[in-house]
Design a protein around this nucleic acid. Sequence first.
DNA 1: TCTATATAATGGTCATACCATTTAATCATT
DNA 2: AATGATTAAATGGTATGACCATTATATAGA
Lengths: 240, 240
Amino acid sequence: MFTKVQVSRVSEEIIRQIEQAIYSEKLLPGDRLAPERELAEQFGVSRITIRDALRVLESNGLIEIRVGANGGAFVREPNLDSLSSSLNSMIKFKKASLLELTEARKVIETATAELAADRASPEDLELLEEVVMAARKALESGDLYYMPHSVNFHSALAKSAKNYILELTVGSFRTQFYNVLEKLLPTRDMAEKAAEDHWGIYEAVKAGDGKLARQLMEEHLSYFENKVHTLNGSSLLDDE
Amino acid sequence: MFTKVQVSRVSEEIIRQIEQAIYSEKLLPGDRLAPERELAEQFGVSRITIRDALRVLESNGLIEIRVGANGGAFVREPNLDSLSSSLNSMIKFKKASLLELTEARKVIETATAELAADRASPEDLELLEEVVMAARKALESGDLYYMPHSVNFHSALAKSAKNYILELTVGSFRTQFYNVLEKLLPTRDMAEKAAEDHWGIYEAVKAGDGKLARQLMEEHLSYFENKVHTLNGSSLLDDE
DNA sequence: TCTATATAATGGTCATACCATTTAATCATT
DNA sequence: AATGATTAAATGGTATGACCATTATATAGA
């Protein structure tokens, strides 16, 4: 019936105003806010209150604080930090398993693969090809550290699907996933298998064959799902 | 080669310790941390530093701070707040559209519907039936405010799919979605259509027919997607 | 020209004080 | 005895002022 009336903290109003300035692009990424002492004066509050606000904005990934001369609070590029860290937090809190994460990834990435086949622009395809080729070349020259190439491929694919929300979501899933998987050095086989899969998916996307792209992605991720399965992965997320 | 060594802030170490205590369940939801002044003494730092840490933990949804006698920092139940707020933030930051959100929902919820058909326990089915029945009854008695029932249904369904990560994700999508949709009072037709759809999905899940559940969910969400489409919804998310 | 040093800007932390809010206990009134 | 008002105590919120630590830049010296 009635909505709660509550603005007990001055710092909240300051957070609101700075957020607003960022969202409305009055403050752009890279811009520097005034030093704390000046902000305090401008807002007519103490430095403490300003610092409270900056702390929250920093924790939400909106600004970055640097110390020293010419330091201060800088508006960040849009980033996944807060999204992945809150996902990470939820996972630890409720002890979700790596298997759930893999399954979730499969759900979203099979969909993005299909969408990408419909929507990828010529530039997207170009980027995808570049990524896939680079990965191949690296493999041939004996580089076994395949993970960055994998990240690149899946990111480029998500981007091609033209749905920023799915891109964000799967991006933060993937971050979690790799954090864990980093402990399992990829063997040559795994890397080669991944490179082949990626190539196939790329070709399906290029051909505009959504169903095939979906199916290949499904197989690709299932392969790694099985790898995870053999590790009985449920406790892998409780690292530290 | 070497990993960055960096703990320039004392408050970060305090955050780490308190997080750790929560994740390891040494601190349980509802527990109260010592008053700021005592924590300061225990950690051997000033109150400011403690407050910095508490500010961040609060912003991450791990604790809740209440003022007054018997106030203090209380460990919260696991919650979606930080996840949805960072999603919300990203959406505003990059101005993602409501259509993207709807599409993302469709991707995940069609999958959860299918999974639910495989995995729903008898208790899950009972809850689903209860929810669907309650919604019907409310409609018959002329209650047009259908949204809470819809939330209940989709939540119960997500829970039945036994993948906490998907449940979280779609939960925070839905929050966003309803925030926007609340401005469009649901007409009688929309409510009745939704109630029928939900019933059908429930029956498919109960019958264990995953493909059917997926298809019905697809149709259900597409219907609302079209409604959104007619509103040319792209700017609806820039509310405040 | 290059390197070391001093200087200034700026966030991080501290100590102390007081205010505002909330709970609980006490007291007064009926 | 019950209820309402008053007071007291606990606790977070904010303010001041100070000093420390880090960093970039300017200055001085080799």
